[in-house]
Design a protein around this nucleic acid. Sequence first.
DNA 1: ATAATTAAGGACAAAATTACCTTTAATTAT
DNA 2: ATAATTAAAGGTAATTTTGTCCTTAATTAT
Lengths: 146, 146
Amino acid sequence: MFSKATEYALRATIYIAQKSSVEKKLSLAEIATAIDSPPSFTAKILQLLTKDNCVINSVRGPNGGFYITEKSKQLPLKKILEAVNENDLFEKCILGLKKCSETKPCPLHFQYKPIKQELIHLFQTNTIQELSEKADNESLFINNSI
Amino acid sequence: MFSKATEYALRATIYIAQKSSVEKKLSLAEIATAIDSPPSFTAKILQLLTKDNCVINSVRGPNGGFYITEKSKQLPLKKILEAVNENDLFEKCILGLKKCSETKPCPLHFQYKPIKQELIHLFQTNTIQELSEKADNESLFINNSI
DNA sequence: ATAATTAAGGACAAAATTACCTTTAATTAT
DNA sequence: ATAATTAAAGGTAATTTTGTCCTTAATTAT
């Protein structure tokens, strides 16, 4: 479904929202270990999420690391997809047809449409905070190797 | 969503179901042109679909080509995904967590679940024939460049 | 039988994605 | 101020996916 990059972005952001605050920043090493992702590749993705502080924040130096503000926690998951340039995924034709549209629909168009809309709805209505709270309850999901 | 390979597999199969019969086989060249896919790569994918005649059939030589039997037209789209080994796509965790399950769910698990089931339902209930008939009505969808 | 045609199959190439490593810049603690 | 720490940034490497090409095998038409 999603690329590795997007999966890591979602997992990392949820983890950061769960565990961080301005006072308690998380290092790349901790994040990558926690979400079971390759550290260097994860660094690149965190950079995307940090661009213009669009989703998360970072500071360098001792006791530096990544954190998320209360304000950013109110952002929809969609923002994460935007940050890693995978936001158009749900817009695309399921058969990969460039010209597929309402007026020129592919044979799956109208059956896929409601599903697509549910996906969009899922990522638009859920905030980062809501997800991180769910993560608190529903077992520590995030470590991929456990 | 899907890989190029899967998109081509779906488009090709629908096109073959639309236009072919045992008497009227379609050449690789015609199929690739019609669905706007790279011919050689498409050849590989058609081979997968032809393995054990699981979805489509082929014959070599003059007036050879690809066709689909009436029986195979009754197969669900899911068969196409199986043939190109992308059938597990809908089984996977949306966050890419290997151990995500009903008892150890990721924070998106229960919200994604119904969507996943609709996707599975879509590919399990629609037959190749049904799709190709839709393609007949809903404009010739398949050429990607028009 | 022979030649022509078409898919099958194998090897290879290009592009995209994923992953790694090293240097630089910023920040902090001493 | 200096040294230590951490992310940023750039380059590179490995892997996967996508795409190409060439030879082989099968079938058909002549």
